[in-house]
Nucleic acid binder design. Structure first.
Lengths: 99, 99
DNA sequence: TCATAATATAGTTATTTCCTTATATAAGTT
DNA sequence: AACTTATATAAGGAAATAACTATATTATGA
């Protein structure tokens, strides 16, 4: 539990950070905090166009952060990487509590 | 302590995330975790050119994440925003402990 | 005052990111 | 089969990032 100085750890960490470092993607991850949601539901909760959200979801998929499965008409998304859930929770603790 | 859904919180959070979402900047922040360090010391610990590190330090300064003071010849830098220290600590916990 | 050490800034270029519009695919319904 | 709903993809351009080289600034020491 010591250093964040192995190159591999730095890379994993910055990958996760880059994934979260965009307002729409952060909102997507917040929306998926607990639930598994269809894309259109994410579009409505988060705002912005269907195409734009779909592309951000694709980015998160590529980075192995969310996964999705088809259910009939729709695609259900959920957070795959538990580390990300911890980070999102931490972001909330840091940026939403006191001030 | 509930939602990360106020637009202002989202913006603050993504600013912090963007600041950390680069390997050199993350390393800089790790190096400054506890200490106040002169720029050249950061250059040596982190690697890359003096100019490059100086520019990344400037980015962190602009984003109000680190601050610096002159001491004779040198400029000493330290992390200004306590929230960032928490986030860095959390990154370590998440990416360096078990696996 | 000249040389050196520490840091910052300018100018340039390559790459990446982000968004938009338009279109494609896949499943469900009539 | 035609229509609709849900989602993905392609193509384009604008803007942001990142790195490099070279040069400027500031302080110290001879």
């Amino acid at each position: 539990m010591e250093l964040l100085e192995r190159e591999g750890d730095i890379e994993k960490a910055t990958n996760a950070l880059k994934a979260m470092a965009h307002p729409l993607r952060l909102k997507i991850l917040c929306a998926l905090k607990g639930d598994e949601l269809p894309v259109l539901e994410i579009v409505e909760q988060v705002g912005s166009s269907q195409s734009n959200i779909s592309q951000h979801i694709e980015i998160l998929r590529t980075k192995n952060i969310i996964e999705s499965r088809r259910e009939g008409n729709r695609i259900l998304c959920k957070v795959k990487d538990a580390k990300i859930l911890k980070l999102v929770a931490n972001m909330q603790a840091v940026f939403c509590s006191g001030n």
